[in-house]
Design a protein around this nucleic acid. Structure first.
Length: 306
DNA sequence: GATCCACCATAAGAGACGAA
DNA sequence: TTCGTCTCTTATGGTGGATC
């Protein structure tokens, strides 16, 4: 069995033993985790990174608290599931975990949060625990993904190829692409393909996360950047959400700040559309809504802006 | 064919609630 | 009573199946 996998299993067993000890000593068990909802807990070098233990403020999930008890129970349940996944060397999607015990999990959002907590607790990314997210991103262009199993995924199919859920099992990439183009929306992605952008702009790879990119899409973008050493350009709307999506590709997100090393690509360059391009190109712009302005104010306080 | 709804990701803000 | 945490809601992007 993989050494890392067996170490994770031992780590889970240690967590469980700590809980048993607490109960035996008459204490109420508690999980103490770094708070991943607080921007003060991330530092910014070239990407967002969760501060190490001791420097970051923490949250406590106490069994004694009526409010956090369901979350405590969910984490215990998931630790058991993850232990089984590691032992059987299998994987499970977040959605499958949700449907396995809807009564306990209650909502997809709560499950996602509990998985994040377990990753923080074990200091390991979710995919190493066998927990994967259903992929939604697409990739198109002259690139072949060689998987651990020996399977080869050719991404030249019309309309692009769904990014595999087990993208962490890619062992090698083969491509002669000169750059990678990240596209915010699926509609734009399809339009660019229809207009023959792959031939007109030379060998290049198009990737879309269909809005906010999921984990598999961000992992693939980092793989392309690392293996091919080519420029990565972002084509997003000139609105707060477009800018935020570009920032997630480039700097990572607050929620996943503990995994930024695997997910962020600091070399992503903002191709446009820039707000200044709107007047230059004579495009009729939509006025910002109250929500847009609120989002802009929020973006302005982020570490990578300040 | 158009519309509705359930589903699947990502994110953050507001307000409710518990602990001290 | 205050402060911090947690849950719910809503925003973005989409797909696919059922119904009219």
């Amino acid at each position: 069995m993989n050494v890392y996998r067996s170490q994770l299993m031992v780590a889970i067993e240690d967590v469980m033993l700590d809980i048993v000890r607490s109960v035996a000593e008459g204490k109420s068990p508690v999980f103490t985790l770094r708070n991943q909802r607080d921007w003060k807990n991330v530092k910014f070098g070239d990407r967002l990174k969760l501060k190490p233990e001791g420097q970051a403020s923490t949250v406590e999930i106490k069994f004694s608290s009526r409010r956090s008890r369901p979350k405590f129970a969910l984490i215990i349940h998931l630790l058991g599931v993850v232990h089984r996944l590691l032992f059987t060397q299998s994987t499970c999607t977040r959605r499958q975990l949700y449907y396995q015990n809807v009564a306990l999990v209650r909502s997809q959002g709560l499950l996602d949060a509990a998985v994040r907590d377990i990753c923080s607790l074990l200091n390991a990314p979710a995919w190493e625990l066998g927990v994967i997210a259903t992929s939604k991103g697409l990739v198109a262009g002259p690139v072949s993904l060689i998987m651990e199993t020996g399977d080869v995924i050719d991404c030249m199919a019309p309309g692009g190829v769904l990014i595999p859920q087990d993208i962490n099992n890619v062992v090698r990439l083969e491509s002669d692409a000169q750059f990678v183009l990240l596209v915010e929306k699926d509609a734009t992605f399809q339009k660019l393909l229809d207009e023959g952008v792959l031939e007109r702009l030379g060998p290049c790879i198009l990737v879309t996360g269909k809005g906010f990119p999921d984990v598999a899409t961000r992992l693939l973008v980092q793989l392309l950047w690392k293996f091919l050493s080519v420029p990565v350009l972002a084509l997003v709307d000139a609105d707060p959400h477009g800018i935020e999506i570009m920032c997630i590709y480039r700097f990572g997100s607050l929620n996943m700040s503990h995994q930024s090393d695997d997910l962020a690509v600091p070399m992503v360059r903002w191709l446009g559309v820039h707000p200044t391009d709107i007047s230059w190109l004579g495009i009729k712009a939509q006025p910002l809504t109250a929500v847009d302005i609120s989002k802009l104010r929020n973006l302005a306080t982020r570490p990578y802006v300040t």
